[in-house]
Design a protein around this nucleic acid. Structure first.
Length: 579
RNA sequence: GCGCCCGUAGCUCAGUCGGAUAGAGCAUCUGCCUUCUAAGCAGAGGGUCCCGCGUUCGAGUCGCGGCGGGCGCGCCA
């Protein structure tokens, strides 16, 4: 967080040299290589180019006016016009003391908190949650947690697929071949069976297909019996969703499914039609985007030729409802990449509909989950992999490892560790790759307990906690270091200083995650933090060190544990005291 | 046909928006447990960043053209 005063001073210095330079373009970032220093700015080279100035001369002029001695050694000009800063250890120590006093944990809360709606997960009623839902659920939850951690107001909303043509077939199945015992045993499995049975039969049975259509029409028309069946299907499904979300630790502020917006659909269509945004084409109501080159060939249908609305209509109604009700600054949609065109259409249609709205819209998309063969991930028999089974297997595999590595721990504790490690492994392996990459699902890699994985980070945390368990009750609290550190610089060892400096960048990384919707930045940061900690752990004895090193190192351990725990919590991953 | 994304070490992938000598994990090889948890650490080898042209002080990153792969493209969501 010491890049902040450096950046502030840089802006002042540049303003003194070039009064009209845009301060927003002036940034101080961590150096890519510690040999150059701790922080750098490369902004002056861009500035020099715009104005046809000599970049090194500009850097020299700026450095001459740069007052950063409180935090940094004298800045150095390097290369084509970089300015490098090397933090003074006393400034690092000061930031650590603030954190020990509880003033911050290396995160600066947002100066202007925003209201952000995060739309994610969105499973379908009457279907089991499967691997296809995992990325949206984990990514969306992590982004919500990141934004909250930075001090923003966040509303999570689960836009359930609880309406649509599939309910015609489901109701036919429910009425004709429902197995009550199976429903009591595994409601979602039974509903899935009903749908698949009827769907397959409709291929050859035209009369059955017609029945399904009629049941759908009755449902849409408000038929009491069909509505009751439909509501029961939602309740049974919601129970399944709640079970999974509880296991994953995912929480929604709202669960407003597609059906919630049914009463608003007609109005949306009428309004778009009357405003000339949508027009009739081949019997359907269609929004054309002649002015958007990318969408010129891709108009959006908002009402089918049979008069029914579709998902574009629902999404527009949803968007408008959220805007009216919650007044957000931003809405984030977390879905897979195949819906890119759809969201471009929705956003473009919305801009034309409500051009005055100050609302940021983000489609945060992610790649597919593939099997080892590079094709969409399936079970050996070719079915979809159910999320509950996936979580079970992760925990079971983790349990075997825990039992092998820590046989002395009581059974109940090993179970709990296996839960934390197994779920952590799944989440971390999902958040670690760039979200836009296709994700190759691999049990061994996911649950590998070495390398850049959740267990490695969780293990680093337990090693720290283990030190504190060994602390005699009479030992001074870590905060006692405060008094000692006033007079002397305790961060003498290179490993200590490196670890301490890395702690400072926690907030910077969280901001990057929120800015680009990329949790993998946080994964990388935490992995580096754990790496710096183990480097420190190997070379710097803590409990056996004399004072003041001992207190200083205890403080460093305490802060590292807190950042690790907090960072993992932002990823939605728990920590354990022992492993 | 058009659009979006991808192509980086043997394998799986990062690369913070154009910055400095391109990084990590796995795998391979060499060391390190009488010492706060070895689920660990230290070190080594390994590269035509798909190809070509361009933009500029500087390109894995931007533009154009190819090659290869994935996905999408009016009444499913």
């Amino acid at each position: 967080m010491l890049h902040l005063p450096l950046e502030r001073q840089l802006r002042q210095a540049v303003a003194a040299v070039l009064a009209d330079a845009d301060p927003a373009l002036l940034r101080v970032r961590p150096c890519p290589d510690a040999r150059f220093g701790d922080y750098q700015t490369n902004s002056l080279m861009g500035l020099a180019r715009e104005r046809k100035l000599n970049p090194r001369q500009l850097a020299a002029d700026v450095v001459a006016r740069l007052d950063v001695g409180e935090w940094s050694e004298p800045p150095e000009i390097a290369g084509a016009g970089f300015i490098n800063f090397r933090l003074r250890p006393t400034a690092v120590a000061r930031a650590l003391q603030e954190a020990l006093r509880g003033e911050h944990l290396f995160v600066q809360p947002a100066v202007t908190p925003r209201t952000v709606v995060v739309d994610f997960s969105s499973p379908n009623v009457a279907k089991p949650m499967h691997v296809g839902h995992i990325r949206s659920t984990i990514l969306g939850d992590c982004l919500a947690r990141t934004l909250r951690r930075l001090g923003h107001r966040v509303m999570t909303d689960n836009h359930l697929g609880d309406w649509g043509t599939q309910f015609g077939k489901l109701i036919v199945g429910w009425k004709r071949s429902l197995d009550a015992a199976a429903l009591a045993q595994d409601a979602v499995g039974e509903m899935e069976r009903l749908y698949q049975t009827v769907h397959a039969a409709c291929e050859t049975d035209a009369a059955l297909l017609e029945s399904a259509r009629q049941e759908l029409v009755r449902l849409q028309g408000g038929d009491a019996e069909n509505l009751a069946i439909w509501r029961q299907m939602i309740d049974l499904s919601q129970h399944q969703f709640d079970t999974i979300y509880a296991r994953l630790g995912v929480r929604f502020d709202h669960t407003l499914g597609e059906s919630f917006y049914n009463p608003r659909l007609k109005t949306v269509v009428q309004e778009l039609a009357s405003r000339g945004i949508a027009r009739e084409s081949e019997g359907a109501m269609v929004v054309f985007f002649e002015d958007v080159p990318e969408l010129k060939a891709h108009p959006a249908i908002i009402q089918k030729s049979d008069g029914a609305a579709n998902y574009a209509t629902t999404d527009l109604a949803t968007l408008a409802y959220r805007l009216e009700t919650w007044r957000p600054d931003e809405i984030v949609y977390v879905t897979d990449g195949r819906q890119q065109l759809h969201f471009k259409q929705i956003f473009a249609a919305f801009r034309r509909w409500q051009p005055q709205a100050h609302l940021q819209l983000a489609h945060v998309w992610f790649g597919s989950i593939l099997g080892e063969d590079g094709k969409p991930f399936k079970t050996r028999s070719g079915g979809t992999v159910k999320l509950a089974d996936l979580l079970d297997e992760a925990q079971e595999r983790a349990r075997r490892v825990v039992t092998e590595k820590a046989p002395a721990l009581p059974e109940a504790e090993r179970q709990e560790i296996a839960r934390i490690v197994g779920l952590g492994a799944i989440k971390y392996s999902d958040l670690l790759p760039n979200r836009q990459s296709d994700y190759v699902f691999n049990w061994d890699k996911m649950l590998a307990l070495s390398g850049n994985t959740a267990p490695y980070l969780q293990y680093a945390y337990t090693r720290i906690r283990s030190i504190f368990r060994k602390l005699p009750d009479s030992a001074p609290e870590a905060v006692h270091w405060l008094a000692q550190a006033q007079a002397q610089c305790p961060l003498a060892a290179a490993e200590e200083l490196r670890l301490a400096k890395h702690l400072l960048n926690f907030g910077l990384v969280l901001e990057a995650v929120a800015q680009e919707y990329r949790p993998n930045y946080l994964c990388t940061y935490l992995y580096e933090l754990a790496g710096h900690f183990t480097g420190f752990y190997e070379t710097c004895p803590v409990l056996k060190a004399g004072e003041p090193e001992r207190s200083s190192r205890l403080a460093l351990c305490d802060l590292t544990a807190r950042v690790l725990q907090d960072g993992l919590a932002v990823l939605g991953i728990e920590t354990s005291e022992r492993m």
